[in-house]
Design a protein around this nucleic acid. Structure first.
Length: 551
RNA sequence: UGGGCUGUCGCCAAGCGGUAAGGCACAGGACUUUGACUCCUGCACUCGAAGGUUCAAAUCCUUCCAGCUCAGCCA
């Protein structure tokens, strides 16, 4: 992370900073944070924000951070996600050596804590069925009613809980509940379930357990066990803070973690809901969780985003408690900013239109040596062949142009990047009236780099030599969804979120592209090789900004 | 409608009683062998609303309005 970026995180989220600074002055001498994903899916940029806040804050205050797999529900969690989450976080730029933990490793301790609470008379075994319990919870504006099992003796609770653990009761037959207040206006405080019986094979503990702890009980204790000082989480857990503190306060831990909440971040024109994404993948609209239109970390990686861009974006969007929906354009700004200095600028024609340079000798080929980057000399140069037949971008030619069009048109002169000035002398159409070929003449005096500039031309076009060009396929991505005030969700899927250009042509050096290369296809945007396809399939990471207005 | 939280420019976001930072977007202009980059310039007499306290309020008080959120043996 750059110093600038660190500065920004220091300037925002002041409610967190002041809490940390206050604690560091008093009860604590080091900051310890954690990111606790449930390994039940892929991480997206919203999750990355939580990673960023927890990990960067630890770094800023010279503390440390943990990655903890919150695997307390074996019905959902899968080993493949455990790996994917680590891979994504490492790719984002965080060292995980010695920092990976599993909630399931604390199951014994958690069990002991539960026993302690029973012994203190603060927890009881409840025989209510799920339906009965739901009914007894009351409602949002109606108090709940006490469970008839609430006043069992400590001995009976101890015995029953032991037998729950030993598998003497069927799934769902009993629960262990905390004894709080069924009339609390905070629903989380209405005698919450601590343990449920569910026979599931756990990816870590196998069949050792048939009872599993609930989040509200497990989470504060996991934090306390790991010595977490500040448990930074998203705002929907704000109302869980009382229960978080309640469990901690009745157990004996050297460090009492403090939970602080911040607002979740979402981004415009994209989807982050797991069920929505899952449905679209099932429909075949998306190519999996790493579809480049998705803001999953794997999708953004595949699309070509650099991790530094994501980190800087995350830092610049700040930390607050107000719900935010950041403009997608802001993400793209940081993507471009990091790509610009490291990308090799090359020429590729996405939608080719043939141009014949009539006065250029047939069979002749000139090799032009062009730098890969205007400012970054470290990127070196490559050879670009120029010949009589070339291709230009179809939209760079217009038969009857408007006044502001300064590309190629009948009688107009433009510069071919790195080569010569050419003037359009005619066009060839097929029987349907489509332009299939443009005829030009070139001016040998105007060769690029010769130093002579006889006259100014406004347009500079990219091009490829017809005989030497390599066929490539270009995948053009755009916003996943569009705002649609009349639609049920206020959004509709963008029908043009992926446009495939199957007949694109690139200059010869593209044949040697590797996965590590970043390119700017001149005037077309930033591209990289797709990691899922063989051959020269390029993903457009992000377009170039443009002030060109048609018509 | 009970509880909790939030409301500062189109979008993020500083500000914490002394007279509205910054970034993105947008709009002009300069430069340009990418209509890119870069560089200038502009962009909230006003802080959800209304009252009040004060010499002074986005900041304090009161009321109101709007949005989000909570009734899994999910996390």
């Amino acid at each position: 992370m750059s110093d600038d970026n660190k500065h920004i995180l220091m300037e925002t989220g002041t409610f967190i900073h002041s809490a940390i600074q206050e604690d560091l002055k008093g009860r604590l001498n080091a900051l310890h944070t954690r990111f606790p994903p449930e390994p039940g899916g892929f991480l997206h940029i919203g999750n990355a924000k939580a990673v960023y806040i927890n990990f960067e804050l630890a770094k800023i205050y010279g503390g440390t951070y943990n990655l903890r797999m919150d695997d307390t529900n074996p019905a959902i969690e899968k080993a493949e996600f455990v790996q994917a989450i680590q891979d994504d976080i490492r790719w984002l730029g965080y060292d995980l050596d010695g920092r990976l933990f599993f909630a399931s490793n604390y199951f014994d301790k958690l069990y002991e804590c539960a026993v302690t609470l029973i012994k203190k008379g603060l927890a009881f075994v409840c025989d209510l069925t799920a339906e009965e319990m739901r009914a007894s919870f009351g409602g949002i504006d109606k108090a709940g009613t006490d469970s008839p099992y609430r006043n069992r003796s400590i001995e009976e609770n101890l015995d029953l809980f032991t037998r729950m653990k030993n598998g003497e009761f069927p799934d769902g037959a009993k629960t262990l509940r905390a004894k709080l207040d069924m009339a609390s206006p905070n629903m989380n405080m209405r005698d919450p379930v601590m343990y449920r019986i569910t026979r599931q094979t756990h990816s870590n503990t196998g069949d050792k357990w048939c009872i599993y702890p609930m989040y509200d009980f497990a989470h504060p204790l996991q934090d306390a066990i790991e010595g977490i000082t500040h448990s930074l989480c998203s705002i929907e857990f704000e109302e869980h803070r009382p229960i978080y503190e309640w469990y901690i306060s009745h157990l004996d831990f050297p460090i009492k973690p403090r939970q602080i909440e911040f607002a979740k971040m979402s981004i415009s024109n994209t989807i982050m809901g797991k069920r929505h994404i899952r449905a679209l993948i099932a429909e075949g609209k998306y190519d999996g969780w790493d579809d480049p239109r998705l803001v999953t970390l794997s999708g953004m990686r595949r699309r070509g985003y650099l991790p530094a861009s994501i980190r800087e974006f995350l830092g610049n969007t700040g930390v607050s408690k107000a719900l935010s929906r950041v403009d997608f354009g802001m993400l793209e700004y940081f993507v471009r900013e990091h790509l610009a200095p490291v990308s090799k600028v090359v020429m590729a024609v996405l939608n080719p239109l043939k141009v014949i340079i009539e006065n250029y000798p047939e069979g002749e080929v000139e090799m032009l040596t062009l730098p890969f980057h205007g400012d970054n000399e470290a990127l070196g140069c490559r050879e670009v062949p120029f010949s009589r037949e070339i291709y230009i971008e179809r939209e760079d030619f217009m038969e009857t142009p408007g006044k502001k069009f300064f590309r190629l048109a009948p009688g107009k002169e433009v510069r071919l990047k790195g080569a010569y000035y050419v003037t359009c002398t005619g066009i060839v159409k097929d029987t349907a009236g489509n332009i299939v070929e443009v005829r030009c003449t070139y001016d040998p005096e105007t060769k690029s780099g010769s130093g002579v500039e006889l006259r100014k031309v406004k347009g500079t076009l990219h091009w490829v030599s017809a005989k030497h060009a390599v066929p490539i396929k270009a995948m053009l991505y755009d916003m996943a969804v569009l705002d649609a005030p009349d639609a049920p969700d206020g959004i509709i899927d963008n029908p043009d979120s992926l446009i495939v250009m199957p007949n694109a042509l690139g200059e010869p050096c593209l044949a040697d592209a590797t996965m590590d290369d970043r390119f700017q296809f001149m005037r077309n945007g930033y591209f990289c090789l797709d990691n899922k396809h063989e051959g020269l399939v390029f993903n457009r990471t992000v377009s170039l900004k443009s002030s060109y207005k048609k018509s």
